[in-house]
C-alpha cells in the first residue's frame, strides 16, 4: 500500500514538475553549456595554446589577497558561529533532557513531587524543546535575511544566523546524548547526596563529552559549507566572490572560487574525521 503511494508520488512529481529530459538538450541549453565550457578556461588563455606560466600568473592574480581573505573569513565565521552555537546548546540542552530536568532526577526524592512540580518540570522541558525546534526549523539563509534586516550587512548577521540555527540542532542532539547516558553512575551519585548540578559535573559531563564533540565537529563542517553559501547575501566570504564573478560573467574566476570552497570543505572534512576518530577511540 505504502509502496504503491510512494510510486505514485514519484510519477506525479516527474509529471507535474514539468521537467522533461528533452529540455536538457534543447538548442538554447546546448549553446549556453558550450559557451560556459569555453569561458571557464582562464581568460588570458582563451583561444590560445595552453601555457602553464600564464596560467600560474592568472591563478595567483585571481586568488590574490582578496580571495585568501575571503577564505580566511569563511573559516573564521564558521568557527565563531559553531562555538557560539555549542555554548548555547550546552546550556539549553540541560533543560531539554527529560532525565536530568525531570522532577526526580535518577532517584526518588524524599516526598513524592507534587502534581504542580511535575507539570512545571514537564512544561520546562517542553518549552525548551519548542524553542530549539523553532531555532532549527528556520534555515540559516532565512535567519541571515532577518538579521541583515536588523543589523545591516556584515559579519554579525551571518555569524548569528549560523549560530541560532545550529544551536537548535546541537541543543536537541546534546539533550539526546544526556538522555542516553548510562544511568547507573548518576543514580549512585544521586543516592550519595548529589544535587542536579553535581550530577551534571561528575557523571553527565564526562559520560557525554565525546559524543557532544562528535556532533560539534559534524556541525562545524556544515557551518563552513553554509558560511560559503551565505556570502551570496553580500558578506565578504567565498560566496560573495562566486556571486560577484557570476554577475560579471567571469566564469573562469567563478570556477576557481567554487573550487576553493570545495577544498576548504574537504579540509574541514578531514580535520573533523580525524578528530572524530580520535574521540571514538578515546
Amino acid at each position: 500500500m505504502s509502496a504503491v503511494s510512494l510510486a505514485l508520488l514519484v510519477v506525479w512529481a516527474w509529471a507535474y514538475g514539468g521537467f522533461r529530459f528533452t529540455d536538457l538538450f534543447q538548442n538554447q541549453s546546448r549553446e549556453n553549456a558550450t559557451r560556459f565550457l569555453r569561458e571557464i578556461r582562464p581568460f588570458p588563455l582563451q583561444d590560445q595554446p595552453w601555457d602553464w606560466t600564464t596560467w600560474f600568473r592568472w591563478m595567483s592574480e585571481t586568488i590574490g589577497p582578496n580571495a585568501s581573505e575571503a577564505l580566511g573569513a569563511t573559516l573564521a565565521l564558521s568557527v565563531a558561529a559553531v562555538i557560539l552555537a555549542a555554548m548555547a546548546a550546552l546550556v539549553v540542552s540541560v533543560f531539554a533532557a527529560r532525565n536530568l530536568a525531570g522532577p526526580e532526577p535518577f532517584a526518588p526524592s524524599g516526598k513524592p513531587p507534587s502534581q504542580i512540580a511535575r507539570v512545571l518540570h514537564r512544561g520546562l522541558v517542553g518549552v525548551t524543546r519548542l524553542i530549539l525546534l523553532f531555532a532549527r526549523s528556520i534555515p540559516e539563509y532565512v535567519w541571515a535575511f532577518l538579521f541583515i534586516t536588523m543589523l545591516g550587512v556584515g559579519a554579525w548577521p551571518v555569524v548569528l544566523a549560523l549560530a541560532v540555527h545550529n544551536a537548535g540542532i546541537l541543543g536537541r542532539l546534546f539533550s539526546e546524548v544526556i538522555e542516553n547516558v548510562e544511568p547507573s553512575a548518576s543514580r549512585t551519585l544521586r543516592v550519595s547526596g548529589a544535587g542536579r548540578g553535581q550530577l551534571f559535573v561528575h557523571a553527565i559531563l564526562p559520560q557525554s563529552l565525546n559524543r557532544w564533540l562528535l556532533y560539534f565537529f559534524y556541525r562545524w563542517e556544515t557551518c563552513i559549507r553554509e558560511a560559503t553559501v551565505l556570502g551570496l547575501l553580500g558578506f565578504i566570504s567565498l560566496g560573495w566572490y562566486i556571486q560577484d564573478a557570476r554577475a560579471g560573467v567571469r566564469y573562469d574566476e567563478m570556477v576557481v572560487y567554487v573550487g576553493l570552497g570545495a577544498i576548504l570543505i574537504l579540509l574541514a572534512d578531514l580535520v573533523s574525521a580525524v578528530a572524530r576518530r580520535y574521540l571514538r577511540s578515546g
Binding site: A185, T188, H202
Partner: peptide, 10 residues
C-alpha cells in the same frame, strides 16, 4: 551497587 555505578570515562 552491583553495577558499581562508576563513571567509566573518569
Amino acid at each position: 551497587p552491583q553495577s558499581f555505578g562508576l563513571v567509566p570515562e573518569s
